[in-house]
Design a protein around this nucleic acid. Structure first.
Length: 446
RNA sequence: GGCCCCAUCGUCUAUCGGUUAGGACAUCAGGUUUUCAUCCUGGAAAGCGGGGUUCGACUCCCCGUGGGGUCACCA
């Protein structure tokens, strides 16, 4: 049975790279019907916090990457276990206690535990890169514990993976050089060796490892910006993995079904926000109206909600318009905040000069056209933008599209750029449509 | 610097010895119902260099070059 794991260290926010590693471990385990385990690597008491651990746990769960262990495994709660292996190793002579000056607290003498390095060549097979060989001589006698009750990373990882029956270690490429050290410890303790697969790194635009200085790396930041969990999962999966087909939009379930480690790349991949946004828009597009409405409501600023003609019915009608203009939900806050959607909920303040179509010689020629529209609108079916268009279209064509449509649209929105007048008329309904046109007419006469 | 990993359009990638080197994002041009957005159509855009191996290399090997990772009593 295949067992994979995600062992984050709760010393920072949930990093996008952690999610990618978790995702691949999850996909690999699920695809093969195996187990996926979560483990909190909080041996560094000074840097680890409960808050970060909670954020990482809830973040991973929010993305749908659920693990099989019911209780959270914490290394801080396993000191007795590490102690046992430390004693055992010392007993066998593969570890030894070394009295030396503390590097943590200079001046103080401590008894650290070191591994007796056999100084050999180690070759391990990486599922993605093939055989990798290291000469461990240069590693020296690795410190495996600060003291018998204070085991360090390499020891805890090896012991935990062994105890948890981890069969496959999929982790970032930055761990390649840690592998020979961990193998040395495994061999010293007589453990078997799991299979390794080192994933390509997620890179910043300058091709270096993605980090805070390159912008957002915390998943929470992307969630706050209005990226959907499904889009995050989808984009991250395709950064460094390819299904072998042209298919790009995947749900987590589909990824589980199609995932194959042989499709994982060797080279690092640059995180491209543009493409990420595109993925997000695709997933946004597959949301139902009800789901999308809920999301929109989360991002709409208060000042829009309190506009005089605001109703949920109108918001519902405005949804398709918002949808086609939004890649990340946060843009809704920005756009709505800038008044781009005010036309749906309040009469606009129309700048008189804007009403004139660029091809028209004067403002006055617009007046009869708007009056004609008013007349046609009396017997117009407002049940859809298309219905409105159909009832006006003959007239529009006879008079000239821009000649009618531009003033029509400006009368309804007061905006240089906006959705088309049929859509706007549909959203605001017959009463407001006619009122706004009349108001424009009044302005022209002034 | 030592050690290790990597190398196809600007970016993500397909190709697993024989292709007009394909797709997607971005970009450019044109089109659709006026503006914006959407959508549609089309275009431009790539095998790091040098040696081999082979009838034939983007593909296999070697050497360069370039990029990256890592060198803790952090994980």
């Amino acid at each position: 049975m295949i067992v994979t794991r995600i062992p984050p260290s709760p010393t920072g926010h949930l990093h996008i790279g952690t999610v990618r590693t978790a995702l691949f471990n999850y996909l690999f385990a699920r695809h093969h019907g195996g187990k996926f385990v979560f483990r909190s690597e909080d041996t560094d008491r000074t840097r680890s916090t409960k808050e970060f651990e909670n954020e990482i746990i809830s973040g991973l769960q929010a993305l749908g990457l659920n693990w099989d262990n019911e209780e959270i495994i914490r290394q801080s709660e396993r000191v007795d276990i590490y102690r046992r292996y430390l004693d055992e190793g010392i007993g066998k002579g593969v570890f030894y206690i070394s009295k030396e000056e503390s590097k943590q607290n200079p001046g103080e003498t401590v008894e650290v535990v070191r591994l007796k390095n056999p100084n050999k060549t180690i070759t391990f097979t990486d599922l993605i890169r093939g055989d990798i060989t290291f000469d461990t001589t240069e590693l020296g006698d690795i410190v495996v514990a600060r003291s018998l009750n204070d085991a360090l990373y390499h020891l805890t990882v090896v012991v935990d993976d062994f105890e948890m029956g981890v069969t496959h270690v999929l982790r970032g490429e930055d761990h390649i050089s840690n592998t020979p050290r961990q193998i040395l410890i495994q061999e010293a303790l007589g453990f078997g060796r799991p299979l390794y697969a080192h994933l390509p790194l997620i890179l910043a635009p300058d091709r270096s490892k993605m980090s805070k200085r390159h912008g957002a790396v915390a998943v929470s930041e992307y969630l706050d910006e209005g990226f959907l969990p499904a889009a995050i999962i989808n984009y991250l999966a395709l950064l460094g993995w390819n299904p072998g087909t042209d298919k790009e939009i995947f749900t987590l379930e589909e990824l589980v079904k199609d995932f194959d480690i042989s499709g994982v790349h060797k080279a690092g991949a640059i995180f491209d926000r543009q493409k990420f946004l595109w993925f997000n828009k695709q997933h946004l597009g597959s949301l139902s109206d009800e789901e999308y409405l809920k999301k929109v409501q989360d991002f709409l600023p208060e000042k829009v909600l309190t506009l005089p003609d605001f109703t949920e019915e109108r918001l519902l009608k405005l949804l398709p318009t918002i949808k086609e203009r939004t890649e990340a939900l946060g843009e809704i806050s920005t756009a709505a905040g800038a008044g781009e959607y005010d036309f749906a909920f309040k009469d606009p303040d129309v700048p008189t000069a804007m009403i004139r179509w660029k091809n028209d010689a004067s403002l006055e020629v617009v007046l009869p056209r708007l009056q004609k529209l008013l007349e046609l609108l009396e017997k117009t079916d407002f049940s859809s933008p298309d219905a409105i268009k159909n009832s006006l279209w003959d007239y529009v064509l006879s008079e000239g599209k821009g000649e009618v449509l531009w003033p029509f649209r400006v009368a309804l929105t007061g905006l240089e750029r906006s959705p088309d007048p049929f859509t706007v008329a549909y959203i605001i309904g017959p009463v407001d449509t006619k009122r706004r046109i009349k108001r424009a007419c009044v302005k022209i006469k002034e």
